[in-house]
């Protein structure tokens, strides 16, 4: 059996309907109407130990809800979740000491005091022994370069440094699984890189299984070989990023700077446009390889410069969402 096994989970939320008009607040107070929103609709997947999985989908797709169910905060209406031979919400105390969770938009550090005090308190919460704790702490301080920042009150830290402390806090008890809910939200390029590299490192060194949700596709490209895509509570795709790319990312924009004129009328040219001092092609790489196409071009015109647009992964996702109508 897999390390993480999710089978046919469902979750419906009850949301009160707001109405407008006179005395509406009073009316809703006495007679509330509810909408039932299916946040998670029959999702199943399994994850092996030591994998990094990117869990993606548009806003409101049910990502956070899934993370909450996997971490035992929420109980699914139906279906099973078994992680490391435990049912998250049933063996809560035992289970949560094996996982770490980072909510990118919420802090678990005490705001007014230095992070090191929070770490010390977490040590007592997780009942870690001194030796173990010291070792892990020193490791984290070194890996994340925290030495100078853990003695400053958290409220005075930059977002990037705070996130580093957040991640360290969620790893202080050496969890087997790490859930990251938008860990790079709002971070600058340098901090993003540090966070990504660190996640990679602990995944490799400590065999931590990582599940991350994000809207930043560069996170996914850097970290996850496997992605799970959901939309409107349904599982849409589960597999490797490369395969998804092959399936959806087949258009390339090639811009050539040239004085010559050329018109190619073949099925692999999706679109052709004359620009100021050259030509812009959009080709379908399933029908012709790029080097073939360039060979063809150079045999017909003289090229002074060429630019190949490598297909942005964000566009790929937009295409995907359109395809699945979410």
């Amino acid at each position: 059996m897999s390390f993480i096994e999710v089978k046919h989970i469902n979750k419906t939320f009850k949301v009160p309907v707001k109405s407008n008009g006179r005395f509406s607040t009073l009316k809703t107070f006495f007679n509330r109407k509810y909408n039932y929103i299916k946040a998670i609709n029959d999702i199943s997947f399994s994850i092996k130990k030591g994998e990094i999985v990117g869990y993606i989908g548009p806003n409101g797709a049910g990502k956070s809800t899934t993370i909450k169910m996997l971490s035992g905060i929420l109980v699914p209406d139906s279906g099973n979740i078994i992680i490391d031979k435990m049912i998250p919400w049933k063996d809560r105390k035992k289970y949560v000491s094996k996982i770490g969770v980072v909510f990118g938009q919420r802090s678990q550090l005490w705001w007014d005091i230095p992070a090191i005090d929070s770490f010390n308190l977490l040590k007592d919460i997780y009942k870690l022994n001194d030796k173990e704790y010291e070792k892990t702490l020193n490791e984290l301080i070194e890996l994340l370069n925290l030495k100078d920042i853990i003695n400053i009150p958290v409220r005075n830290l930059s977002l990037g440094n705070r996130m580093k402390c957040e991640i360290a806090a969620s790893l202080i008890h050496r969890p087997k699984i790490l859930f990251l809910d938008e860990p790079t939200i709002g971070l600058d390029a340098v901090s993003k890189k540090i966070v990504r590299e660190f996640i990679k490192k602990i995944n490799k060194q400590n065999k931590v299984t990582v599940i991350l949700t994000t809207h930043d596709m560069a996170d996914i490209e850097a970290l996850a070989k496997r992605i799970i895509l959901i939309g409107k509570g349904k599982l849409l795709y589960d597999g490797s990023l490369n395969l998804l790319k092959k399936k959806y990312d087949y258009l390339r924009k090639i811009t050539v700077i040239s004085k010559d004129k050329l018109k190619i009328e073949e099925d692999y040219v999706i679109q052709q446009k004359n620009i100021e001092n050259g030509i812009e092609f959009i080709i379908d790489i399933r029908k012709i390889e790029i080097n073939e196409f360039i060979k063809l071009l150079s045999s017909k015109i003289s090229i002074s410069d060429i630019d190949i647009d490598n297909g942005n992964i964000d566009e790929l996702i937009v295409k995907l969402y359109e395809d699945f109508k979410i």
Binding site: S71, G72, I73, R92, K93, K94, V96, S97, I99, R106
Partner: peptide, 13 residues
Amino acid sequence: INGTFDRLLLRPQ
């Protein structure tokens, strides 16, 4: 409302 309760549920206490 501010979600702190989720955090408490994640601690083995």
